Amino acid sequence: MTASEVLELARKQGKMIATAESCTGGMIAAALTAIPGSSDVVDRGFVTYSNGAKMDMLGVRAATLEAHGAVSEAVAAEMAKGALDRSDAQIAVSVTGIAGPGGSEFKPEGRVRFGLANADGVQTETVEFGAIGRDAVRAATVAHALHLLGKSCLS
């Protein structure tokens, strides 16, 4: 789903969008706001690359980071919920992952955790994009986040 399609679906539903981004560094918000007229749908974006930013800006709990690590569904869930709670949006998407290069046995390159928060609650998922390179992982993450936002606008 393209950014334009997401914006149109959100517009038809009367919903605003917020983003909470780590590994993409604002690329999801940038994709949405590259479309003229997006200000009636996009409320705000949070770029929370460090753990401190995740805690300060989104309310991610230190205990969650300590127990699960920054690249976890638990953190993605708290990021999405925090973005929803700290905005005027009705839908928030979050991403945290290992774009690469590198990674580890437990957190391989290309693993991205997604969170989606709306009136129905918070859902999370993990996508393994693989060691396809930093730029490709980030681009694939943006595309998948747009897909999740579009699906949320349809429900």
Rank of each mutant, 00 (worst) to 15 (best):
A80F: 05
G59T: 08
V41G: 01
L32A: 06
P101M: 10
A34D: 15
T33L: 14
P36C: 01
D88W: 01
A145W: 07
R11T: 01
G115H: 04
D56H: 11
K107Q: 14
L84P: 04
V41F: 02
A20N: 11
G110I: 05
E109D: 04
N51P: 11
M16H: 06
S152R: 12
P101T: 12
E73T: 13
H144G: 07
I35D: 02
F129I: 09
A29I: 06
I98T: 11
V112P: 02
T126C: 15
A119K: 13
G59K: 08
V112T: 03
D120K: 15
A131F: 01
S104Y: 09
D56N: 14
G69R: 05
G37L: 05
E8H: 04
K54F: 07
A89C: 07
A67S: 15
S4V: 09
A77T: 02
G115P: 02
H144N: 05
A143I: 01
A34K: 10
N51G: 10
A83W: 07
E21R: 12
A20S: 13
V142R: 09
A143D: 15
G130I: 08
E21N: 12
A62E: 14
V71C: 10
A67L: 07
E78A: 06
E8N: 06
C23R: 06
I132K: 12
S38R: 02
A74L: 01
S94F: 09
A3G: 02
R113M: 13
T96N: 12
D43N: 13
A63Y: 00
K54P: 05
A63T: 15
G14D: 09
R11K: 13
S4Y: 00
A140H: 05
G103N: 05
E8S: 06
A83C: 08
T124F: 05
G121M: 04
K12T: 05
E8Q: 14
E8R: 10
R11N: 04
G25I: 10
A92Q: 10
A3H: 02
Q90N: 04
G130M: 07
Q123N: 06
F106A: 11
A80W: 03
R113H: 14
